[in-house]
Simulated assay, not measured.
Amino acid sequence: MKVIAAYLLAVLSGNTCPSTDDLKDILGSVGAEAGDDRIKLLLSQVKGKDISELIAAGREKLASVPAGGGGVAVAAPTSGAGGGGAPAAAAEPKKEEKVEEKEESDDDMGFSLFD
């Protein structure tokens, strides 16, 4: 992602065809490093392509990706309906164990956000 971000920054600054050195300079300015193989891979994949077309194609792909909102449906246990001596499966509620929280230590060296 940081290589892609560096590429986008270079393009947004007006450099339509950034080189490996350009991307390394951008990444180095914030103390980040990236391997030459990743930079070369990215540059080979975007060579000769318009950045706005790449972004539009990416948006179309992201539109088909499910992004939350769906939960797992869990069926509630049901008891048997009728039947004279058929034992019904009794659903016992799970006992929740209370986890005691450790008292806060003085790791903050006596400073507190609310003091």
Rank of each mutant, 00 (worst) to 15 (best):
G71I: 15
G69V: 01
A67L: 06
V72G: 05
V74Y: 01
G48E: 08
S64E: 11
A63L: 13
S64N: 09
E53S: 08
D50G: 07
P66E: 05
A67M: 07
K49I: 09
S64L: 11
L41Q: 04
E60D: 15
K49Y: 08
A73T: 08
A63I: 13
S52G: 08
A73Y: 07
A73H: 10
Q45D: 11
E53V: 06
G58Y: 01
Q45L: 12
L41F: 12
A57R: 07
G70N: 01
S52N: 12
E53N: 10
G70S: 09
D50L: 10
V46L: 03
P66A: 06
I51S: 05
S44A: 11
E53D: 10
V72A: 12
L54F: 12
A63W: 11
G48A: 09
A75I: 13
V74G: 02
K47M: 06
L62Q: 13
Q45G: 00
V46C: 03
A73E: 02
K61Q: 13
G70K: 01
S52L: 04
A57T: 04
S64Q: 14
V65Y: 04
L62F: 08
K49D: 09
G58R: 04
A75F: 03
G69A: 08
K47F: 08
V65Q: 08
L43M: 05
A75D: 03
S44E: 14
L62P: 03
K49L: 15
G68W: 00
A56L: 15
G71E: 15
A75K: 04
E60I: 05
D50V: 00
V46S: 02
G68H: 00
K61V: 04
G48M: 07
G70W: 09
L43R: 13
S64W: 00
K49C: 12
A57S: 15
L54G: 02
S52H: 15
R59W: 15
I55C: 12
L43G: 04
K47H: 07
A73S: 05
G70C: 11
S52K: 09
E53C: 10
G58V: 01
A63C: 09
S64D: 14
K49R: 10
V72C: 11
A67K: 09
K49S: 14
K61T: 00
I51W: 15
K61F: 07
G71C: 05
S44F: 00
A73Q: 06
A56D: 08
K47T: 00
I51V: 14
L41G: 00
L42F: 00
Q45W: 15
A73C: 01
L54T: 01
A57W: 15
E53A: 12
V65P: 09
L54D: 01
I51K: 04
A75V: 11
I55F: 07
D50C: 10
V74L: 10
G70P: 02
A73I: 14
G70Y: 12
Q45R: 14
L54H: 01
V72T: 03
G48P: 01
D50N: 12
L41Y: 07
S44Y: 00
L41D: 00
A75C: 05
A67G: 04
V65N: 06
G68L: 05
A67V: 15
L42V: 02
I55A: 14
S44M: 05
